[in-house]
Structure formats: C-alpha cells, structure tokens
Design a protein around this nucleic acid. Structure first.
Lengths: 187, 187, 187, 187
DNA sequence: GATGAATGAGTGTTCATTCAT
DNA sequence: TATGAATGAACACTCATTCAT
C-alpha cells in the first residue's frame, strides 16, 4: 500500500531535514504519490510526524522492555543496553534519529505524543540504569560511583549513539564504550 | 546598534527553532526592527545564519587555542578541555547549540562556512585529544588505551555537553566526568 | 433509499450555506454515505443542485397552477397567492429558500435550469398578479391602482415571505399583509 | 493606494458572488495586485470581508442617524426612510447588497462584526419605525394599524429595496411604494 | 448500489526578498 | 540607516471528481 511509501519517505525526510525543513510535496514526490493522498491517510503534516514518532517510540520501547526480562549479571544488563542501541541504530538509523530530534516549534500536537514519549523515554532510562547501578553497588559488583551523575553520563552516551550514524558501523567503538564502563563500574 | 539586536534575536531563534523553523519576520520582530533592515545588514537569511555561525566558531576556537598554550600535565589538558566546554555552554548556551546543529538542508552556503568550521572543529578535537592521549601513553602518564576509540568517546561527551543545557549547571556532572577519565586514563 | 438522504442533506446545505459554501463531503457526511455515491446518483455537484432546484420549482409551480383553476372573487385569488406562499414556507422552508437563492457563479448549468425556472417564476407571478389586477380594476372590484408597480410590490412581499423564515410562523403577519392589500385594492 | 483597489474589487465580488464564491486570487487579479499584498493590508480573507462589512454598515448607519434629527411630519419620516434606501442603493448597490447578505458559514469572525451590525440594523429599524407608527397613531395622523406587524412589513420592503437592483432606477416604484404606505397609514 | 484509494486543479496563506523613498 | 509597500515562489491543505472493486 502507498501509505507505507508515505511513511517511509516522511521518516527519511523528518530524520534528515527536520520537521520544518520537510515539505509535504517532498514527501509525496519521494513516496510516488500525490499530495492530497497524504491528507487521505493522515489529517495533516502534523499527524504524519506524530504518528511516525509514536510508532518509532513504540518499537523502541518494545526492545527496551525485553532487557528487563533477561536475567544476567548487573553489568551485562548495562552492556545489553548499549548493544541494543547500537543494533537499533544500525537497523533503522532514520527512525532512531527521530527519538532525539528536538520538538518542532510549529508542531501542533494535541495529544502530546512528543512530550509523552520523550518523558517516558527519559524516565525509563533513568530508572533502568539507576536501578542497575544501585543493585550493582549494593551487591558489591560495582564500584561505589555516584548514581545520579553516572546515570546521566550513560544516558549521554546512549544519546550520542542514537544520533550519530558515524558510530553505527564501528564494532570497535561499541567495544571501547562497553570496556570504558567495565573499567569504571566493575570492582 | 540595531544590528546587534538582529544577531541576538537570530541566534536565539536559530538555536531553539532551527534554521528552517526560524522566519525572518520572527527575527525582525524580536529584534524590534523591520524585515528590510535585515537585508541592509546582511545579504539574506542565509548570511545571517552563516555569519553568526562563523563568529560563534571563531569565539569557540579562540577558547580552544588557549588550551594548547597552557603548559600542564597531560591529564590537565584533557581536564581543561572539559572545563572549557562546561564554561562556554553556561555562558552562551544558544551560541554553543549552534556549533552542533545539523546543516540546514536549504542553506545555500557558497563559502562553505558550515562545512569548513564543522570539519575544523572535528579535526581540532581529534588532533588535540589524540595527541594528548599519545603523549600521555608514551610518557607513561596514561594507561595504554586505544587512541582512536577513546578520542571518539571523549568527543561524544563534549558533544553532549555542548547540546544539552540540562547539564550546564551541574558541577557534580562535570566532576564525575573528569573523575571517570582520571580513572580510565591515569595509571 | 440513500438517494433521498443525499437530496435532503444537500437541500439543507444549499439553502443554509449556499452552493459555494457547501462541499460534497459535507453532503455525503450528513447523508450518511460516501462521496463517490453522489456520483453514482448524480453526475456531479452541479447536477445535485440543479436537480433539486428543478424539483423544488416543479412542486412550487404545481401549487401555483392550482390557484388559477379555483374560481373565486379576484381578491380571493390574490389572497390565496399569499396564503400558498405562507403555507409552503412553513412546510418546506429550505426548499423555498432555494427558489430565490442567487445564481451560483460557478454553477455550470448547460440546460439552464436555473435561468429557465427563475424566469418562468417571475413571468408567472407577473402575469397572474397583473391579470388579477387588470380584471379587478375592469370589473370595478379594485381601485384603479397602477398595475405594473403594484404587481412589483406584491412580488416584493412574496419574495420576502419565501426568504425569511422569521415570518413563517406568524399568522398575524399573514393577516396584516392581506388586510393591507384589501384596503389598497378593494373599492 | 492599492489598498483601495483591493477593497473595491473585494466589495464587488463579495456582493455578487458571496464570500465562499469569491477567491483571493479573483480579488487580487481584479485589483491589479498580487495575492500576498492582501495579507499585507489585511490578516486574511476573513478580515477583508469583515472590514468591508463594518465600514459599509458604518456609512449606512451614518445616513440613518440623519433621519432622526430631521423634524417633519411623522409620515415624512417614514417617507424619508424609503428615500434614503433608494438613494443608497442607487449610489452604491454592491455595498448595500452586503448589508443583507447571509452570514458566510465559513467566516471566522472573532469580533462578531457580522452579528453586531446585523443586530444593530434590525433593532434600529424596528425602533425607528415602531416609534413613528406609535406617535403617528397617538397623534391621530395615522390609522390604528398593528404596530408590530406593520413595522415588519415596512422592513420587508426596505430589505427588498436593498437587495434588488432592479428597482433602484425606477422612480415609479419608489413613488408607488410611498403611495402604498400613504394610503395604509394616513387617515 | 456502494466503497476505499487516489488524483488534478485550485485555495488561502506564508515565505524570503526587493524597491522606492 | 531605516521603512512602507509590494512581490514571486512556495507552502500546507481542500476541492470535486474518478477508478477499480
């Protein structure tokens, strides 16, 4: 169906040019459809954006939730977190870029899809990483690092991984980052 | 002078809404001038952007160059690098945000001001950090880390600092980051 | 049948919002059908309008023709004319509003349904009222009023009755108007 | 100035084709300007319409107020009312047509310019005519007609005069109408 | 009869920019 | 320096309509 073409084209443009830099004409041209069809499948440019954003976050959260269920050592939980991000960025770099894209100033988002997902994202990472660190420190597996700041620094790195396509093909980077945290965290 | 108002207003908008999301009307309104005046002082929206970008990079590089001249231990050179970034973001967050803003798709930039500065920025950091690491390792001050990847990780962190205003007021974050690198690098 | 729903919905909209102010989507929504169905039953928006208009005029003329056959005093013929209009507006205000609606500028009306009916309407009233007046004056039943102008004034009033729903429920208005004409016409 | 051209062109179109049937392109073409200029002088199509409507009503009310100040016989006050309407329609038929044009369904009119003026218009006529009738009846100058209904019938006629350009050039119609009311009202 | 998907032409509007003053 | 008036090109979006099913 052509709706998928629209979504694919729009995702690419939104990720690379931003919301404001993407025109409905560009989307329809790339998707091989006429502009009015966008308005048959979506209520407008806004909804194309939020709909894509919502489904991207949904996929992303699904992947994250898997991490919680796996039972490993605490450090492996941190390691998996990085691995998942590297994998996702490699598989769908455009989609992942949207996750950290700044909120388009002109976007009317009545259901607050942007805000909701962004907040949930932040909270999820904070909670997941924070818990890992606490547990790791309590169990003696980890050095007694400062939980709050260390969490933020891990999130910083995840953010960079999500954004920068440069790193996505470098297993060396992946290993170095994990090694960095192994040395910082493990006693 | 009103030109300064224009620059200040434009910087704020470009940093917060992006190039495409910023209209010349918004700039002129915020600056308290009429739109045509923008075209008296600049050749167009493009030049407002590139001119600001160029001066921001210029200030930034000036700060970076100071680091080279200071004679300290190798680690202090790395430390200073982080400190400078924290300081700059605190002093002028909008300007710093521009440094890592994605290249506006629609920007016509005949003198390649964006590309030139961005490349120079990357190269500068790569070279500065790479040299520090090599020297540190050679002199026995640093552990024998992988130079290329470690450089990238440091740059990742600097990028995050430049972008995220959230961290700018947190001395604890700053200290934690530096502390981590002390643990990673120093023998 | 759904065709009737379409006609009913369209009539309401054409009467209240005008031809240009009525969209095919609005009609189909109100009628509880999809837009393409309009094109199964009609050749297009134009034909929906002209078809409705034609049937409205047809009903209207049928009512008018009845007046001619009744044998009464001349004044009662004038009186009946007003009564018929009051009755029709009360029974089907939307339909009657269409009779005097201005010709939609964008309407393509190859069979000139609008023009034909409108002209016939004007001519019918002119002739009916004119004849009544002449006969009445000749027979001595009426005062020797100016036929042309008096005809126009009566038509003016009928037009207002057709348009203004406000009057439709007021028997007092009806009686006053008839009373005035009794005073003007009868010797 | 070109703003006047816009107003003149828009007035003509709004009067003849209605709000929905008038495009901004038609206005700008007729006015000999580009479409964006409409948006320099007005905030949008809506404001062009309401602004014209407001000024038309303003002119119209100015003319009506003059009637109140003249001291004549009661009947002459009624007569003047008709004369003023005939004169105005002759001088500016487009403008007068707007006064009774139906409220465009799609018009966003935050200041309720349409409703305010329309109501004021109705109230003004009701009060002016009603007072004349009452005074005329009390003083014995007029027959004891039913005030409410007679007022409505006079307004009906004024409405027709405002709408129908056909009558505007006919002094005979004017005289006949006034004669009609002379015979109805004067004892 | 009836619909989901799709379209060409056009609508109101905004954009960055220019020109005369 | 600075502005009021004006514009060409593009923008997001709506319109009546069609087609395959």
């Amino acid at each position: 169906m052509k709706k998928n073409n629209i979504i694919k084209a729009a995702t690419r443009f939104f990720a690379s040019q931003g919301y404001d830099g993407t025109t409905t004409k560009a989307i329809s041209d790339k998707a091989g459809v006429t502009e009015p069809l966008l308005y048959y499948h979506f209520t407008g440019k806004d909804e194309i954006y939020t709909s894509i954003l919502d489904s991207v976050f949904s996929d992303y959260f699904k992947q994250l939730e898997v991490l919680k269920k796996e039972t490993k050592t605490i450090f492996e939980k941190i390691e998996s977190l990085f691995l998942v991000h590297f994998t996702l960025v490699k598989k769908m770099p455009n989609e992942m870029a949207l996750i950290l894209s700044p909120r388009p100033a002109k976007l009317t988002d009545p259901d607050n899809i942007y805000a909701k997902n962004t907040k949930r994202h932040k909270r999820w990472l904070k909670s997941y990483i924070g818990n890992c660190l606490k547990k790791g420190i309590d169990s003696g597996e980890f050095n007694p690092v400062q939980v709050k700041e260390t969490t933020s620094i891990i999130i910083m790195m995840l953010n960079e991984i999500l954004q920068k396509k440069d790193y996505k093909d470098s297993p060396a980077m992946r290993d170095s980052i994990i090694d960095f945290w192994r040395r910082i965290l493990l006693v």
